[in-house]
Simulated scan of single mutants.
Amino acid sequence: MEVNLNTYLFGQGKLDVNFMFDLTAKDGAFSYNGVLHNFNARVLNQITKPLGLVRINRGNVDKLKFNFKANDLGAKGTVAFSYYDLSVALMKNDPEKDHLVTRGFLSFLANALIIKSENPGADGKLVPVAVNYSRPANTSFFNMIWKSLFTGIKYSIGITEEKQNKVREHIAKFKAMRANHLQRKQRRLERRIKREREQNEKR
């Protein structure tokens, strides 16, 4: 069975999608491919914030092309994401405030060390990223579609496990430097208190 859909993503980017379903497959095999045309990248916040705790501050998308083969267990395919002038903020859940808050320092590191602000880059080459998404149990059909695309978007802009590990290393070094600084500050304070106590005893 073939299904062709033409719509607009949140009223902005034109989305053309083709689905092919194998109705005889016991594993629910199907495929989907399509193109999401020019739009302001911030419209993706309605997807990226709840799915990945990422807020897009600014950016413009030229085109998002995707091609996947999938079944009940997951989806495998490619995503080609063309965009420019991208900046993001990483978010976290704050139980006290009951909403998402920005991870300021981590966002700074992400934009400085991870995020590719444009694709294609200076060499003009747009290389599709490969996605192999495993579907968690009890999740919906459309959840798998969105998660597979979101994974491709993350990889395209540079948010890979390797890059995130590098940021974690930088954060660990920063925390160690800060802890060392606080220890030195505490020792200086203790020496000063000791000197003042000795001076008072001499008086």
Results as ranks from 00 to 15, higher is better:
R188A: 14
F21G: 10
L23A: 12
G34F: 06
V129A: 08
R178D: 15
L9C: 04
P120T: 06
K185H: 06
F30W: 10
T151K: 12
G59P: 00
F21P: 07
N180A: 15
E2M: 10
N200R: 15
F68H: 02
L90V: 08
G34N: 04
L51Q: 10
Q46I: 04
L100M: 08
T24R: 11
V43K: 04
Y8G: 00
A176K: 15
T24M: 13
A130K: 15
E118Y: 02
G152K: 07
F105E: 13
G34A: 02
T151G: 03
L106R: 14
F105R: 11
F105K: 12
K63A: 09
S87H: 04
F81W: 09
L15D: 01
S82W: 01
H37T: 07
L149K: 05
D22N: 14
G13R: 00
R168V: 09
D22C: 09
A75E: 02
A110S: 10
G59V: 01
L64A: 06
R187S: 11
E169M: 09
R187D: 14
A80I: 00
F150H: 12
G13Q: 04
G74E: 04
R42K: 12
G34H: 10
S148E: 13
L44P: 02
G124N: 08
A89G: 09
Q46E: 09
E2Q: 14
M177G: 06
E198N: 10
G59E: 00
F141A: 11
Q12F: 08
W146V: 15
G34M: 06
F174S: 12
F142S: 13
K65F: 01
V35E: 10
V127S: 13
S31I: 04
T151Q: 15
D16N: 14
L36T: 06
A122G: 08
T139H: 06
E96S: 14
A122C: 00
N4W: 02
P95R: 04
N45K: 01
P50T: 00
G77R: 02
V131I: 15
R55T: 01
V79G: 07
Q183T: 11
S82R: 08
D16F: 05
A70C: 11
N143I: 06
I153M: 14
E118N: 12
Y8F: 14
G11S: 07
A75H: 02
Y133V: 12
T102N: 10
A70Q: 05
Y133I: 10
R191F: 06
D85Y: 00
L90G: 01
N111C: 02
K69E: 14
G11T: 05
N119V: 03
M177E: 15
M144Q: 15
S87N: 02
P50Q: 03
E196I: 11
V101G: 03
N57W: 01
D85A: 07
I47L: 11
D85S: 10
A29F: 03
I47T: 09
N143V: 06
